[in-house]
Write a protein that binds this DNA or RNA. Structure first.
Lengths: 142, 142
DNA sequence: TTAGGTGCAAATGATTTGCAATAAT
DNA sequence: ATTATTGCAAATCATTTGCACCTAA
């Protein structure tokens, strides 16, 4: 369980000034179980009674992503989502209920080695998402 | 080597009326070696002297994707790209020169089985991209 | 003639830019 | 004072919607 105070450290470690808005944005992204979009971050700030302009949020997100504190994702929605940068995992997006789950795996590392061997291409990061039906929706909608 | 005439068949097989613009869009996407965005498709139509509104192109792309003739992709650019739907492969996007290569693999099928076992999630489609440095750019930029 | 295809104008949504106001060191 | 942070207005870019017009079966 992380507390707000840790975000101050995280920010400082990343060489960023720790401001209330930055801490709050980091906190909101962290307390979220699945990747969150900018509009949701903005309204979450409002409900936390933290006054911050949308533009400021965009700029903070750019900074945090640049410094590697958060990861920027796309789920074929025409917008970005963010999550805290943690151990490697891939997202499972249910096409029926929209729920986003995640899974870790041991396959991709080997696949990236193969990419290096076959293509000489060095993978720095990847974007891997699976779209389908979660267990619950298979029962309901089928 | 496919000819325009095949696109007529492709469209009809998909249950779509074969119009000049639809054939041209399909042709442009097919002659492209890597996934192409909408703006490029529109200007390509212009240079082929085919008059078509941007909106029409969007609608055609939606149709073609819906019918499975083309695939809709995202490369973290905030816009969509399209390619002909072919055998399964993943994209290698060079962060230095922007070149987009592709690779086939035998890993993902097994990973999707594991997802089914571990999570009960049934994968219908996936989005898998690797970002890094292509062989040429490793020589130059390093 | 009738449904589907297209064009044009305008709306929407996400993101970015410029610049002035503000806060922190 | 000087630099970085934020707010506000407006611009930009990708995509969508509404509606009228046109065209092929």
């Amino acid at each position: 369980m992380k507390h707000q105070i840790n975000h101050e450290k995280d920010l400082q470690n990343a060489g960023l000034e720790s401001t209330p808005v930055r801490q709050a944005v980091l906190h909101i992204i962290e307390e979220q179980k699945s990747p969150i979009d900018v509009a949701s971050i903005v309204s979450s700030l409002e409900s936390h009674n933290i006054k911050a302009d949308k533009v400021t949020v965009y700029r903070i997100l750019d900074l945090l992503a640049e410094k590697g504190l958060i990861a920027r994702l796309e789920f074929q929605e025409g917008k970005f989502r963010y999550e805290v940068a943690t151990s490697d995992h891939h997202h499972l997006i249910c096409l029926n209920c929209g729920k986003i789950d995640a899974i870790e795996d041991n396959w991709i590392e080997d696949l990236e080695k193969e990419i290096k061997q076959k293509k000489g291409f060095i993978v720095q990061r990847h974007s891997i998402e699976f779209y389908g039906l979660c267990a619950e929706c298979q029962k309901k909608s089928t």
